[in-house]
Write a protein that binds this DNA or RNA. Structure first.
Lengths: 195, 195
DNA sequence: GCAATTATTGAACGCATATTCAATAATTGT
DNA sequence: ACAATTATTGAATATGCGTTCAATAATTGC
């Protein structure tokens, strides 16, 4: 009874996410979005409330992809220790591979948004909480499997590992020296017993 | 032979730095700077080339203050272990105290600036390198004093500690839970022997 | 084929931005 | 007192931003 959409909403969202990822929220203009998506401002605004809303949906999409990757590493059929190591290999590789500022959109956002953006902040907070919990669970398994050094608390160590995931990201903005990140990673992996 | 300045350049710079610290580079407008410094655009531009240059000078000033604080902690007259602990107490306290987004200006800048701002990036990189070296030296002393656990490399551990300084900052943007940061810190301080 | 409905277009809007510059003011050496 | 020099002012400029909306196009049910 009415004219149908000509675009694919998901494709548009993906293009927008890539832009926000590369250039940040403020750094991405509506013109950029128009150019990248092929949609005119009017269509963009009818599909997604406004720029901010489009950004929020982009964050959700980003997390979906990120979380799938994390799960992929942590649910493999190997020892708990190996799964944690795989995750960190992926993280480090991700940072090393990113030629352009493409480090984690969520971290970038946390530091970019003004302090009164409580909603976005708490949303990202719960996203990372979810990942931290996954890591914590696997560390718990590692302890049962006897590969975790005694005296190490999964709860606290998962926070420390998260802190280093964040920290290595900042690190990767300074030097692209492959070894620096790998040294940090290896240092962290000393939480496991050497047999 | 000519009219003298009516303002104090250092005071102006300090006010600008505070603004950039609170609101970031893009988030700070020239109008903001005009309001905060009391200088009109023309004067501001004759004193500091342009906004970008003023920002660069703000970064240098910020580092001066930061470095002085770091040195203050690391050159105290106590054991190497205590000095490192003092530094991390300060870092964590700094994050906990900051009511408004006032985490490290240098880290914020690293994540905010576009990727092609190589000059700023490498400048900040060498700033943090200087701090890392200081930490490394003190860890070296700790090793000699026997307070560092055997098998821990000062060079690598100083990188890991830097990574956590960065990471805890990101962490502090999510939760203001005092314990989380302190748990991470205590976990890191396990590099020291317990006698 | 027509009426109804919705999608798309892209110019236009109001506002904010960084920067400039001619006019004015203040100081100093002579 | 005056000329020379420099500082200050703040309106003007050009550009870019996010957003809106009237006009136009496309589709479907009847």
């Amino acid at each position: 009874m009415a004219r149908p959409h000509t675009y694919n909403r998901q494709h548009v969202l993906e293009a927008a996410m890539q832009l926000f990822w590369y250039k940040g929220y403020e750094g991405t203009s509506v013109k950029d979005l128009v150019d990248a998506t092929g949609l005119q401002p009017g269509s963009l605004y009818s599909a997604f409330e406004n720029k901010r809303q489009l950004f929020c949906e982009s964050l959700e999409l980003y997390f979906e992809l990120l979380y799938a990757e994390v799960k992929g590493a942590l649910e493999a059929e190997t020892s708990a220790e190996k799964r944690i190591r795989t995750l960190f290999d992926k993280v480090v590789m991700g940072y090393l591979m990113s030629t352009e500022n493409k480090s984690c959109l969520l971290v970038n956002t946390l530091l970019e948004i003004p302090f009164d953006e409580k909603e976005i902040r708490s949303r990202i907070s719960s996203m990372f909480n979810k990942i931290e919990k996954e890591i914590c669970n696997v560390l718990g398994e590692a302890r049962i499997q006897g590969s975790l050094k005694p005296g190490i608390s999964p709860e606290i160590m998962s926070k420390t590992l998260m802190s280093n995931i964040f920290g290595m990201e900042v690190y990767s903005h300074m030097s692209q020296d492959e070894n620096e990140l790998k040294q940090i990673m290896n240092n962290l992996m000393c939480i496991f017993e050497i047999n």
